[in-house]
């Protein structure tokens, strides 16, 4: 349909893989942070809230550079992970996933937090009187009730990860087949003579993917919402 070259397909598949891995890995942390922000009061809560939202307001290149100096091979965290677990982020697709996860994190946390704040905690008390311990309450009452917010957060994070450019290219560069996502491929094509047609095809793919994510978000959250109000 889009008549893509093998190189284009590589970029599309890589973008999808990076966005899916980034979102899946960020989700447990997003739920945990959303829960803490919604339910706990502690000293430094405003600071945590600010840190979570930082990637949203910082220039992406700043986030990417901070990832490079901390998670790069010689960065303190990057060196630790390499020495102890053999994990490398710099100039790998895993690094792109990390950058995308960090950039999408605020968009993931916010709807989850709002959904958790909207839950009537008296339902959780009711579950406890019926014999559910706190872990069971979380998985049978709290999270199912927060599902519309979790779905919204996941799709916003996924869409953000799919389109991420600045932090990714700063952190892991623009290597075809390893870190060159759709965005980076379009950028490269616009820098070479005669690349317009190929760039145009990838632009169409980007639009199609973004639309699909938005429609999926709408369908899933509507389905989750109607579950609560009967058939």
């Amino acid at each position: 349909m889009f008549d893509l070259s093998p190189a284009d397909w590589t970029a599309v598949a890589l973008s999808l893989r990076i966005a899916i891995v980034a979102t899946a890995c960020a989700l447990p942390f997003g739920i945990a942070v959303g829960w803490i922000l919604a339910r706990r009061n502690f000293w430094g809560k405003t600071l945590l809230d600010g840190l979570v939202h930082l990637p949203l307001v910082l220039p992406p290149v700043v986030t990417g550079y901070m990832l490079l100096i901390s998670f790069g091979r010689r960065g303190p965290i990057g060196a630790f992970l390499y020495d102890h677990f053999g994990i490398v982020f710099s100039f790998r697709w895993t690094g792109a996933a990390l950058a995308c996860g960090v950039m999408g994190f605020p968009l993931l946390v916010r709807p989850i937090r709002l959904a958790l704040e909207a839950i009537d905690s008296r339902l959780e008390d009711a579950a406890a009187t019926l014999g559910a311990n706190s872990v069971l309450v979380l998985f049978t009452v709290t999270l199912p009730l927060a599902l519309p917010g979790i779905i919204a957060g996941v799709l916003l994070c996924f869409a953000r990860a799919l389109g991420e450019f600045g932090a990714t290219i700063t952190f892991v560069s623009n290597i075809p087949g390893e870190t060159q996502t759709i965005s980076a491929a379009i950028y490269t094509l616009t820098q070479v003579p005669g690349g317009d047609a190929a760039a145009g095809r990838l632009v169409l793919v980007a639009i199609a993917l973004a639309l699909a994510a938005l429609i999926a978000a709408e369908v899933f959250s509507r389905r989750a919402a109607t579950r609560f109000h009967g058939e």
Partner: peptide, 20 residues
């Protein structure tokens, strides 16, 4: 004793059925 270990049935004023 934690509430979930007390085995005391509780009917609340507003029912509190699980909507999902």
């Amino acid at each position: 004793v934690a509430p979930h270990r007390r085995r005391i049935g509780y009917v609340f004023q507003e029912g509190r059925l699980f909507p999902h």
